[in-house]
Design a protein around this nucleic acid. Structure first.
Lengths: 205, 205
DNA sequence: GAGTTCGGTTAACGCTCATTAACATTTTCG
DNA sequence: CGAAAATGTTAATGAGCGTTAACCGAACTC
């Protein structure tokens, strides 16, 4: 049970830099020499730590999906009976992740196809479980939602929350706290609308 | 002024297939031979129509941004005084695009970095104009929104609407119409929440 | 303190792949 | 018709890049 202060091992440094570079220029857009240079060693030295470039990507993507799922499960386990609070907790966790590890979020839905079949299957399975967590939580709050609707809403809200990488180009963000609060509001609003039975705002069509 | 029924020229075929392939496997993941094969010619025959692979991507991305902006401007021009209707019209237009040209939507925020500086600047500028269209329309409906908030909400809703490519893996969609309606509802709900002054749903924190 | 492991280095290999060359065929049209 | 443009073809080129080979010093370890 030691994940913190075990020293940022070389492996971890590499993964972190690789994530940043992959997110910036895409998996194929980054050479191993670059990744090596980013951690002070150069080129093939990476092969002392990873089987290959693919292995780095795989470990990153599996790691992301795993972390998201683990965090989600923890929050579900901590539920105290208030479904709304659980949904808020899930949203908050996802926002934290999207804001803190925006590189990984970017990778997550950009480079999945580059994985070996088995790895991709694993990642997809973790993703699916994570989605189902949300779907269950959402339907707890809005029992009127049928499963398919709920799933679609969850996917859409993921898209909303994961939009943070696209910000920052346009204008400097209004501070992390305010950003998080705004995203939370937006997500909640979308969910509420999903559950509204008919004509969401007044326009009959 | 002839864009339709001028025959689907070779150029257009190529662009269409290239878009599909790029969206599926990424710009670097697709070879020119593959693109050629997709339209019946093979390999370097493409160079009779495009200066290079980069040029195809550039034309695609500029085209997308341009189409979005043009469509948005048209809808703004057709405004009849009802700000809510304009916002709905913009949403509807974007959803149509996201559902009909999901390949292009995918490309749009995945491969922008591969462009030459000048092209990327152009695309960004078109994007920015499109965003500003939305921001203005949104603030017309919700005057309480400050510009920065509105811009963030718009970006987030783009993320939401552009999430459609991620669907379809999980479960068969419930039909195009229903999908469009649902996305519309979600977008409207998010916007409404953005404008809500405080504590969106009841949780005080 | 000798030997093994660890973590690195540089040089070389080999493959993929965009691009160009050289050449052929059809279409246009004066 | 006949020349020139248009549209392809295949073969060659050349750069980039992931990976492997061969080699080396430091750090443990018995």
């Amino acid at each position: 049970m030691a994940t913190r202060t075990d020293a940022p091992t070389r492996r971890e440094q590499i993964l972190k830099e690789a994530a940043r570079l992959f997110a910036e220029r895409g998996f194929h857009g980054v050479g191993v020499d670059e990744i090596g240079a980013a951690v002070g060693i150069s080129g093939p030295g990476l092969y002392r730590h990873f089987a290959g470039k693919d292995a780095m990507l795989a470990e990153l993507l599996v790691g992301i999906s795993g972390q998201l799922l683990t965090g989600g499960k923890r929050r579900v386990a901590e539920e105290d009976g208030d479904p709304g609070a659980l949904l808020d907790s899930l949203i908050e966790g996802h926002i934290d992740f999207a804001l803190d590890d925006r590189d990984l979020i970017t990778l997550h839905d950009r480079e999945l196809d580059r994985l070996r079949d088995s790895d991709r299957k694993l990642v997809r399975q973790l993703q699916r479980q994570y989605v189902e967590l949300w779907v269950a939580a959402l339907r707890e709050v809005y029992p009127g939602l049928v499963e398919q609707e709920a799933r679609m809403a969850v996917h859409a809200v993921f898209g909303l929350l994961n939009s943070t990488p696209h910000l920052g180009r346009t204008s400097s963000l209004p501070g992390r706290g305010a950003t998080a609060r705004m995203l939370h509001k937006l997500a909640r609003g979308a969910f509420a609308a999903a559950a509204a039975p008919v004509s969401p705002d007044g326009s009959p069509e």
